[in-house]
Every structure is written in structure tokens, then in C-alpha cells.
């Protein structure tokens, strides 16, 4: 059975556009819906943190320093008596925002580079590929660290640092797509029927590249979140008074023997978030691929 038949079977004829078919197929995957629910819930929580969080992130409760989880502080407090749950909600703003913004920046840089390299070929392609070779030969964590040290400390710098090498993945992906599409029969057929380059780019290249790019963004967001968490864990990322999940873990990692809750809760929240994004990304890839039966 070829892929068109499968798609026809699993998608009702009324869903004509790619987006509708995609949503129909995604909705039928329970894992994807749970993951999407977690992701959306978290985004809502961090956006409305000022109204939802029981305490202000910097609010100190000197009656409860280093408090383990209690009825008053569900996830305990830190050395200054700050509520861990509230700080997790505010920290999530930074963690999620860095993930999303870094990914957007990477796409803005990587997509045109990949497309230009693939379309132009010859020396342009060669030059970009050698640049990618060089950048991917430097240990990425070291490059992040150097960038973070060079740039002024702060939120924007972390996004920039993560994007310096982060665009490589997207660029490679888009270039690969462009190169393989150039040789497909339908593009050649379109050429043969006299379609100009603009038409081919708009109606073949963009449409066919869109879904892998969307999937790669969804999977890239938790990737960037992990990198931010790592940098902040080492004490080189987000600086107080701002906070992020990685920073919370890093600041209190030495106290794991006495105040486990300061490390364990951020660790669990971070892992759960990453899991939800990855599962969502995987399900989106399946939903975009008509050859996979959902």
C-alpha cells in the first residue's frame, strides 16, 4: 500500500488542508493529548504566576527557614524562607521563555542559511558547510560558557549563547530537505510544466519543509531548556534575583543531605516538562507523516 492510500484511510476526506489532517491525527493520539495538556497547563501557570503563586518569589518568611514541605509551604522553603513552589512558578517563566526564544532565534538564523545553501549550491553551500564543520568541532558546552562570559550577564545573553551553535541543526535539516526535494519527480515534473523557481519554492519547498521544521522546533525547545538549566546549574546562566529551574538546583545542590526538597522539586518539574515536550514532538512527527497509521 502506498502512502497516499494509507493517508486516505486514516484521514476523512472532509479534512482537506494539511493543518486539519495533522490536528485530526494528533487528536487521536492519547499520549500526545496528555503531553499537550501538560505543556499548555505549565504555560498558563507561568503566565498567571502572579495570581496563582501563593507567595511572591522574593518574599521571605523568617519563621520558616529551610522548612521542609508543610501545609503552609507545599514544597518547603529555602535559606531565606522563600517559598519553593512559588519560585518554581516564576522560575518556569524564565526556563520556558529561554527554551522558546532560543528556538525561534535558531530558526531565524538556521532556516535561511540552510535554504540558501541548498538552493544556491556550489561555493555558497561549501562555505556554509565548512562554517558548520568548524562550529561543530568546538565542544558546545565550552562555547556556551565562553559566550556567557563574554556577553553581559542576563536573559538575552543566554538566548544568544545558545543560538550561536544551535542554528546548525535547523540549517542542516532544511538544506537536506531542499537538496532531496530538488531531485524529486514532482518538482521535476513541475519544472517540466514550466513552473518558475518562485512557484516551486512557495508551493513545494515551503510546504514540504514546514512539518520537519515544526517538529524540530518542538523537540528543540526542551533541548534549549536543558542547556539553560545546565548553564544556570553551573552558576553561569540566569542570575538572581531572576530565577530558573536549573539555577534553583545549582544554588542548593550542596544542601541535598539536609534540605532535599530544594533540589528534588526543581529536578522533577524540569524532567516532567522536558518529557512532555519530547512526547509532544514525537507525536507531532507521527501526525505529520501520512505513512504512519495512527
Amino acid at each position: 500500500m502506498n502512502s497516499a492510500d494509507t493517508a486516505a484511510l486514516s484521514t476523512p476526506a472532509v479534512y482537506r488542508s494539511v493543518g486539519q489532517a495533522f490536528w485530526y491525527r494528533l487528536r487521536r493520539n492519547p499520549k500526545a493529548m496528555v503531553a499537550l495538556g501538560v505543556v499548555l497547563l505549565e504555560i498558563v501557570i507561568v503566565i498567571f504566576a502572579p495570581w496563582i503563586a501563593p507567595y511572591e518569589p522574593g518574599e521571605t518568611d523568617y519563621e520558616a527557614l529551610w522548612s521542609p514541605p508543610t501545609a503552609k509551604h507545599w514544597m518547603g522553603t529555602d535559606d531565606l524562607g522563600r517559598d519553593v513552589m512559588s519560585r518554581l512558578m516564576y522560575g518556569g517563566r524564565i526556563s520556558i521563555a529561554v527554551g522558546i526564544l532560543a528556538q525561534i532565534t535558531q530558526v531565524v538564523i538556521g532556516l535561511p542559511i540552510g535554504a540558501i545553501a541548498g538552493l544556491m549550491g556550489r561555493w555558497v553551500d561549501y562555505a556554509f558547510m565548512r562554517l558548520i564543520d568548524i562550529l561543530s568541532s568546538v565542544p558546545s558546552m565550552l562555547l556556551y560558557l565562553l559566550m556567557v562570559l563574554v556577553l553581559p550577564r542576563g536573559f538575552v545573553s543566554i538566548v544568544i549563547a545558545l543560538s550561536v551553535t544551535g542554528w546548525i541543526g535547523i540549517a542542516r535539516l532544511v538544506r537536506g530537505q531542499v537538496l532531496s526535494l530538488k531531485t524529486t519527480d514532482y518538482v521535476r515534473a513541475a519544472r517540466g510544466m514550466g513552473a518558475d523557481t518562485r512557484h516551486i519554492i512557495v508551493s513545494h519547498l515551503v510546504r514540504n519543509t514546514l512539518s520537519p521544521v515544526v517538529v524540530s522546533i518542538t523537540i528543540g525547545i526542551p533541548g534549549s531548556m536543558m542547556a539553560e538549566a545546565g548553564l544556570s546549574f553551573l552558576g553561569l546562566g540566569i542570575t538572581p534575583p531572576m530565577t530558573s529551574w536549573g539555577q534553583m538546583m545549582g544554588l542548593y545542590q550542596a544542601y541535598i543531605q539536609t534540605s532535599w526538597h530544594l533540589t528534588v522539586f526543581p529536578a522533577l518539574v524540569l524532567s516532567l516538562t522536558m518529557l512532555a515536550w519530547f512526547v509532544l514532538g514525537d507525536a507531532m512527527r507521527d501526525a505529520f507523516d501520512p505513512s504512519i497509521q495512527v
Binding site: M226, G230, F233, A267, L270, M274, L275, F278
Partner: peptide
């Protein structure tokens, strides 16, 4: 899925605990 979503330093700290 576990390997993908748990960063190594998070797993290290959880194991330590």
C-alpha cells in the same frame, strides 16, 4: 524517553539523594 527528558545533572542529583 527517560534518557531524553532527564538531564544528566538532574539524574545525578536525584541518584545522590
Amino acid at each position: 524517553l527517560f534518557c531524553m527528558s532527564v538531564p544528566s545533572f538532574v539524574f545525578a542529583k536525584l541518584m545522590q539523594y
